[in-house]
């Protein structure tokens, strides 16, 4: 939990520093061995490339902090995209109507799937792992059913234009992701809802016995995860100008990896969106830098795996330190 008290702030910086330092070392290393790494174009590329994972990971942080997890984000993202794509292709709608309704549809589908995940897992006390595994299949099957496995393309130009917009050389979609992360951070640290998420992640029974309804908070937290999935689906569509039912396979794993590398505890209640930002950046920089270095695909995958495990080891040391205070 962040705080403005200076002692805690210092401790928090130290805690966050490990992962920030790792990112810095990585950036310096790639800058030294791959000259094109630091070009403006490449940095814009990296920002574009981490955008979708960053949005998904921001949402995922909510589910993980409350003590759950969401394995369905990739599949739900495909469902959101194909439904939004279907709406966008309605000839009876004008462009602004189609875009507005398409975006709305994506957000609503995402929130509905997320809310359902949260409700089923907390009302019946089923591990979120299992419920969202079910939702993964439901959403993927739903997306295939809706499209009959076809790719949807040819969206209105103003819609597609968003994917390539940039402001002072920074991709607008990344700025959007950053703004969403900022809002998420404020919600987690400054609101009653955020307080409830952390408290439930730490000790749900104590929260219940303090007169709260953990169910409501948990359903809302998963709904937020779903909302971010809906947003990510729209960003995906504007970037690639297509929507197909098999998009997003494995995205949940990247999002979870970003959250974990960022130091959020898988058992809930501990972590922050600042960490998630750093985690997503590390994954993006690693993928980009290794390609620029000419490292083979297979070795790239090995390195990514090693980084995830190192992050968790680092985290276990941090947890021990924080226990001793």
């Amino acid at each position: 939990m962040p705080s403005s008290s200076s002692g805690v702030l210092v401790r928090r910086i130290l805690r966050e520093a490990g992962i920030g330092l790792a990112l810095l070392v990585m950036v310096l290393f790639f800058a030294a061995v791959a000259p094109s790494f630091t070009t403006h174009e490449n940095i814009a590329n990296i920002l574009t490339q981490i955008t979708i994972n960053l949005i998904l990971a921001t949402g995922m942080t909510f589910a993980i902090l409350v003590g759950g997890i969401d394995l369905s984000v990739g599949a739900v993202m495909a469902l959101c995209a194909v439904i939004a794509g279907t709406v966008l292709k309605q000839d009876s709608l004008s462009d602004p109507e189609a875009i507005g309704l398409g975006i709305l549809a994506s957000l609503l589908v995402g929130m509905a799937c997320g809310g359902l995940n949260g409700f089923v897992s907390s009302f019946w006390g089923i591990p979120a792992f299992i419920v969202t595994l079910g939702m993964l299949n439901i959403a993927r099957g739903g997306a295939l059913e809706v499209t009959n496995a076809r790719t949807i393309y040819d969206f209105p130009d103003p819609f597609n234009a968003f994917g390539t917009m940039s402001l002072l050389g920074v991709p607008v979609m990344f700025l959007l992701a950053l703004a969403l992360l900022g809002i998420g951070w404020l919600v987690l640290t400054r609101t009653v809802f955020g307080r409830m998420i952390y408290a439930i992640g730490n000790n749900e029974e104590a929260v219940r016995l303090s007169g709260h309804r953990p169910l409501v908070t948990k359903v809302l937290a998963f709904t937020v995860t779903g909302l971010f999935v809906g947003i990510a689906a729209i960003v995906y569509m504007t970037r690639l100008t297509i929507a197909n039912p098999i998009l997003g396979i494995g995205f949940e794993l990247n999002a979870i990896a970003a959250v974990i590398i960022g130091g959020t505890s898988l058992s809930g209640g501990r972590g922050s969106l600042v960490g998630t930002l750093l985690g997503a950046a590390i994954i993006g920089v690693l993928a980009n830098g290794l390609i620029l270095m000419g490292v083979s695909d297979f070795f790239r995958q090995i390195v990514t795996g090693v980084v995830i495990i190192l992050a968790v080891i680092l985290d276990s040391y941090r947890a021990r330190l924080s226990l001793r205070g």
Partner: peptide
């Protein structure tokens, strides 16, 4: 187990209810 959120500050526990 039931009264406190141990890992969180005194402030959070004081105002929790």
């Amino acid at each position: 187990e039931e009264g406190l959120v141990l890992q969180m500050p005194a402030r959070v526990n004081t105002t929790l209810a």
